[in-house]
Simulated scan of single mutants.
Amino acid sequence: MSDGDATPSAHHYGITVADLEDSLAFYRDTLGLDVLSEFEVSGEAFAEGVGVENASAEFAHLDAGGARVELVSYTPEGADARGGMVNDAGAKHLGLSVPDLDAFHDALPEDVETLADGPRTTESGTTILFVRDPDDNLVEIVEA
């Protein structure tokens, strides 16, 4: 696109969840993201806009240090697209950074699933840890 006013910029990163309260507890209480707003949306224009007949949804917007994370729970629910691994075609993950990944890992509740038993430093020098949210979505935690 050549028109600077028409060039998209990031607004939010959306994650569809089954239970907004369970997911909100994870992202707010376990990961420490601040809640910016919670709201509901429904109506014909919304249903047409998301391409789901009779859709309504509950939303929570969270502050991830300059990035907005949107958790959304739809009625009616769609197909289950949870789980999988990062190398699956169509896979997605949210990336967040922390200053001390070892301290973050040590503070995680025992019931939070990780892909490795602790942070790993890659050949590029980046230290990473993947965790799963209550809906089995992957969240990559990177040491800043």
Rank of each mutant, 00 (worst) to 15 (best):
S42F: 07
E38I: 08
L129S: 04
T122Q: 10
N54M: 09
V131I: 14
V131S: 02
D3H: 11
T16V: 15
V112S: 03
L33W: 01
A91H: 13
L101F: 10
L71F: 05
G83C: 14
G95I: 04
G125H: 08
F26Q: 06
A6Q: 13
A6I: 09
G65K: 01
E21A: 15
G95S: 15
I128P: 03
F59Q: 05
T7C: 14
R82W: 06
R132F: 03
V98R: 04
L31R: 05
V69Y: 04
T127A: 12
T16I: 13
V139P: 02
H12Y: 12
A103Q: 13
P8W: 04
D111M: 10
R82Y: 07
L115R: 07
D117W: 06
V41R: 07
G83Q: 11
A6N: 13
A144V: 08
G118D: 08
T7S: 11
K92S: 15
V139M: 05
N54H: 12
D5E: 13
V112H: 02
G90E: 06
N54A: 15
G66N: 07
M85A: 15
T122E: 12
M1K: 06
F130E: 06
D19R: 14
L94R: 01
G51C: 08
D3W: 04
A116R: 13
V86T: 11
S124Y: 13
H11C: 12
T7W: 05
R28G: 02
D111N: 15
D136I: 05
R68N: 11
S37V: 02
S56E: 07
T114N: 01
H93N: 11
V139L: 08
P119A: 12
D135Q: 06
H61K: 00
V98H: 02
F104K: 05
D3K: 01
E113R: 11
D34W: 00
A91V: 09
D117P: 09
L24Q: 05
H93R: 14
G43T: 07
G66Y: 00
S56W: 04
F39A: 13
D136W: 07
A89M: 13
S9Y: 07
D117E: 11
L33G: 01
V139D: 00
T75F: 15
T7E: 10
S124D: 12
V69P: 04
F46D: 03
L33E: 04
G4D: 09
E53D: 13
P109N: 12
F130C: 07
V41Q: 06
M1F: 06
L33Y: 00
L138H: 08
A6W: 09
A10M: 14
V112I: 05
V98K: 02
S73G: 11
D5M: 14
S37I: 02
R120A: 15
D106I: 09
S56D: 00
T121P: 09
A81T: 12
T127P: 02
D34F: 08
D106A: 15
D136V: 04
H105C: 14
V69F: 08
F104D: 03
L138R: 08
A10E: 05
N87H: 12
S2W: 01
L129I: 06
S9Q: 11
D135I: 02
D5L: 15
S2T: 07
E113P: 04
V86P: 06
S23K: 03
V69W: 01
E40W: 00
E53F: 05
G14H: 02
P134E: 03
G118K: 09
Y13S: 14
L108P: 03
E140C: 10
L108T: 05
M85S: 15
